[in-house]
Amino acid sequence: MLFDSRITNSNLLGHRKLNTKHIGHFSTTIFGILLALVVLFGINSFVIINPGQAGVISILGKAKDAALLEGIHLKPPFITVTDVYDLTVQKFEIPAESSTKDLQNLTARFTINFRIDPMKVVEIRRKKGSLANIVSKIIGTQTQEAFKIAAARRTVEEVITKRSELKEDFDTALGDRLDKYGIIVLDTSVVDLTFSPEFARAVEEKQIAEQRAQRAVYIAREAEQEAQAEINRAKGKAEAERLLAETLKAQGGQLVLQEEAIEAWKTGGAKMPNVLVMGENSQGSIPFIFN
């Protein structure tokens, strides 16, 4: 009996230790679960908005009226969704097609630099949602409409020769249309502008013809100026001959004849004669060569 009593007491002590160990494990598990719930609750109770961002909180699917700007913001846990929008400059390349005033087809690609107005983020969230929707449903559609407006005001030739004016009209139309959606257009550029190859050749040939016509006008003016110069030279020569005749008549022609004789010797390549025979009272008169 003494032996049995010892065995029984030993078994009871083992059971007590086992129960104490189980209770310790259970308490640790409960503490871990509670700690995880506290951490999860804390994480879902606030949201961090970084610089250059804006957030919109939706509680049970309904967006709150005020946008969240940079900083830490509290929110109801587990029942809210936060949409964060990038407010920095975004850049997208968007295709567009249109017809000109003379019904020529045009295709183009535009690079659009824009940013979202932080004061209209909630409205954008309610109407269009994500940035992908903004680009495809708003910016893409309005780019197409703005290009139609700009292209329809001019012929295809004017589109080519007045490309800067086309871009100016496009920028104005696009800016006005996107502003009401809370999208601020910062800059646009025409990446590519194409039309039919046949029309391209026709325009090139016309430009070449115009250049040739301008060249012909220049040559005609140049010929006219040359003819006028010839007339002026002829008038100058006639005036010189008239003055020469008057000089010969007034002075007997002695000085002029002497000058012409000397000039003839120079231009003819002959040397001045060493022997000259002068007449009586011939001082200042033309010399005669003794042959």
Score class of each variant (00 low, 15 high):
residue 184 I to F: 02
residue 56 V to I: 10
residue 65 D to M: 10
residue 79 I to T: 11
residue 1 M to V: 13
residue 166 L to P: 06
residue 254 Q to T: 09
residue 13 L to V: 09
residue 243 L to T: 05
residue 104 Q to Y: 10
residue 280 E to V: 10
residue 115 R to K: 11
residue 91 K to E: 06
residue 55 G to H: 10
residue 208 I to M: 02
residue 233 R to S: 05
residue 286 I to R: 15
residue 192 D to H: 12
residue 56 V to Q: 11
residue 183 I to A: 08
residue 158 E to I: 00
residue 118 P to G: 01
residue 117 D to L: 07
residue 20 T to G: 01
residue 52 G to R: 00
residue 261 A to G: 09
residue 140 G to F: 07
residue 115 R to Q: 05
residue 22 H to V: 02
residue 131 L to D: 03
residue 268 G to H: 06
residue 168 E to L: 14
residue 110 F to N: 09
residue 209 A to R: 15
residue 134 I to V: 15
residue 12 L to C: 12
residue 245 A to V: 00
residue 15 H to L: 05
residue 248 L to W: 03
residue 61 G to L: 01
residue 41 F to Y: 12
residue 274 N to F: 05
residue 239 E to D: 10
residue 102 D to A: 11
residue 229 A to Q: 11
residue 210 E to I: 15
residue 90 Q to H: 04
residue 201 R to S: 13
residue 19 N to K: 07
residue 31 F to H: 01
residue 289 I to L: 14
residue 140 G to L: 09
residue 257 L to K: 08
residue 180 K to A: 14
residue 165 E to Q: 15
residue 122 V to M: 09
residue 233 R to E: 08
residue 75 K to M: 03
residue 174 L to G: 02
residue 78 F to R: 02
residue 32 G to I: 03
residue 78 F to L: 07
residue 61 G to I: 02
residue 44 N to I: 04
residue 99 S to C: 05
residue 200 A to R: 07
residue 12 L to E: 06
residue 230 E to D: 01
residue 180 K to T: 15
residue 199 F to Q: 03
residue 68 L to F: 03
residue 252 G to T: 11
residue 157 E to A: 14
residue 207 Q to A: 13
residue 200 A to K: 12
residue 289 I to C: 11
residue 269 G to W: 09
residue 96 A to F: 10
residue 115 R to S: 06
residue 94 I to T: 14
residue 62 K to S: 13
residue 68 L to I: 00
residue 198 E to W: 02
residue 237 K to N: 05
residue 78 F to E: 03
residue 55 G to Y: 06
residue 289 I to W: 14
residue 136 S to T: 15
residue 18 L to R: 00
residue 212 R to S: 06
residue 127 K to S: 01
residue 13 L to H: 03
residue 141 T to W: 12
residue 104 Q to W: 09
residue 157 E to L: 12
residue 133 N to W: 12
residue 254 Q to E: 12
residue 235 K to Y: 06
residue 29 T to I: 07
residue 201 R to E: 12
residue 253 G to V: 11
residue 113 N to T: 08
residue 273 P to W: 13
residue 243 L to H: 00
residue 34 L to K: 09
residue 237 K to I: 03
residue 260 E to V: 03
residue 201 R to W: 04
residue 46 F to I: 03
residue 225 Q to Y: 02
residue 273 P to G: 10
residue 163 R to S: 14
residue 273 P to N: 14
residue 77 P to W: 03
residue 143 T to N: 14
residue 20 T to M: 01
residue 186 L to Q: 15
residue 111 T to C: 01
residue 236 G to A: 04
residue 263 E to S: 13
residue 148 K to C: 04
residue 156 V to R: 00
residue 89 V to P: 11
residue 219 I to P: 07
residue 121 V to S: 08
residue 204 E to Q: 15
residue 23 I to K: 01
residue 97 E to Q: 08
residue 110 F to W: 14
residue 64 K to Q: 15
residue 239 E to I: 09
residue 263 E to N: 14
residue 255 L to E: 05
residue 85 Y to F: 15
residue 253 G to A: 13
residue 243 L to S: 01
